[in-house]
Design a protein around this nucleic acid. Structure first.
Lengths: 249, 249
DNA sequence: GTATTTATTGCAATATTTTGCAAGTTTTTA
DNA sequence: TAAAAACTTGCAAAATATTGCAATAAATAC
């Protein structure tokens, strides 16, 4: 049997029974448990099921995937996320933006950390759904079917009801003189509100977003307090931001 | 049996019987009491049930776990859903409540039907995510980790911003004199608001919910305009509702 | 065509997690 | 207060994961 076919079979069994064991799959598909384990790992990385000890289970009904966006560069994003994690302290109220870097960050939050998380991202909710001590508040609004977030008036109003210690924002484009920009007017408004309502803003950005600009203005670079990237803070491309008074990690 | 599956079985039994003993669980799941004790500890740390001496009880103010209800009586729920579908007309603004009946209904909405849907249920969003012409507005709020809905002040405020043609509500309990009731104060408030803001309310109920009552009052039975059940409208158990002026389907 | 690379699979050695048991402690019950 | 039931802790056995490696098959280059 060809590998793809086997993956299909696994998915089918999971969707039928909601959970399957390695032993059963290994027997019914005539391959070793090791192979099944690897298959499940592949499928779980694609977000098509959830790997658990001894087998796999179907995902929760909370939407968890970004459809339009490819999950490329995940390694870099995890680096950024793990650097940003240090700024989150027990007991804080934090805003989590959309975007895969932020999703990676949510995955890293320790299970015993008490937090209040306000977010407008379905994938983030999906990650925190299993978190025992995080109080999660979802900012509703019009569903953005491409980014898997909510957006618009309602979303902004919700964020206005909170005063966060920290806003963890994913960056679309950042430029020393053009400031923070994004591809969409409503998103710009929303990000502006999130920053206003938070004591401190941390921008998560991979190096390819630095020194670029899009059409819709969010605010000057000095609106962010800290920039976290996937390179060394000593990288000379970052000097211009340091001179503007922004802390780099 | 894999561990995850066992945890769900425990949740299911707890939500069905409201309380379970270590001894019973140990016998029915074929593991030692120690293991069950550890399982219950895990679940209680996630806030999905309450550990008590000798077993576990359901968390009183929280609706039963979504997954536990998911498989239960799906056939009946689909009957109810398909009957309710006829009331949804092109171009309307509709409220969709949580619950598996409503999820089944969302699945039946034709792909070419133009609608504005306001909901607080993640599973419903998940279904409508693929719908090409439905504008989906998600009512944010505090995440209810068992029912996969949002709840609380924020959620209620969001619904107050809309005037819907139709509110499709899942019923917890309905009784001719006790009225509409549910297991949780916040949920009761929310349902009340949804009905207030909608021109017409349709209650989806399987027969086992009829003539039962829970602790938290939503409103009199006359708050709903139509009741859709899984039996014939001529069923004599429904007469008392007809006499109250409610249309039965 | 053959050689080289690449991907896949199973196996073995080594961690890690889960589970059941036993001994001792606490809580409940009568 | 004594007996029974339930809980806690530590530990060893079993189950499951991880890693590296070799054998095989498939793809690609030469």
């Amino acid at each position: 049997m060809i590998k793809d076919e086997r993956l299909e079979q696994i998915l089918e069994q999971v969707s039928r029974a909601r959970s399957v064991s390695l032993t059963d799959l290994s027997a019914s598909l005539n391959v070793s448990e090791d192979t099944i384990r690897r298959d499940i790992k592949i499928l779980s990385e694609k977000g098509l099921l959830k790997a658990v000890r001894g087998g796999a289970v179907a995902h929760s009904p909370i939407p968890h995937h970004f459809r339009a966006r490819e999950k490329h560069d995940m390694a870099r994003k995890r680096i950024v996320a793990s650097k940003a994690l240090q700024f989150i302290k027990e007991g804080q109220v934090i805003f989590l933006d959309g975007g895969t870097s932020i999703q990676a960050l949510a995955e890293l939050i320790p299970a015993d950390m008490k937090l209040t998380v306000v977010t407008h991202s379905f994938p983030v909710v999906s990650v925190l759904e299993d978190h025992p001590t995080a109080e999660v508040i979802f900012a509703g609004g019009r569903l953005c079917k491409t980014a898997f977030t909510t957006i618009g008036y309602e979303t902004i109003q919700t964020f206005k009801n909170f005063r966060a210690d920290l806003c963890l924002m994913s960056v679309c484009s950042i430029h020393p003189t053009m400031g923070l920009t994004t591809v969409n007017h409503e998103e710009a408004q929303l990000k502006r509100t999130m920053m206003e309502m938070a004591g401190q803003t941390i921008a998560l950005s991979t190096m390819d977003k630095l020194n670029t600009a899009e059409s819709f203005y969010i605010g000057p670079v000095t609106d962010v307090d800290i920039i976290v990237t996937d390179t060394e803070p000593t990288d000379e491309r970052l000097n211009v931001y340091k001179e503007a008074g922004i802390t780099i990690f």
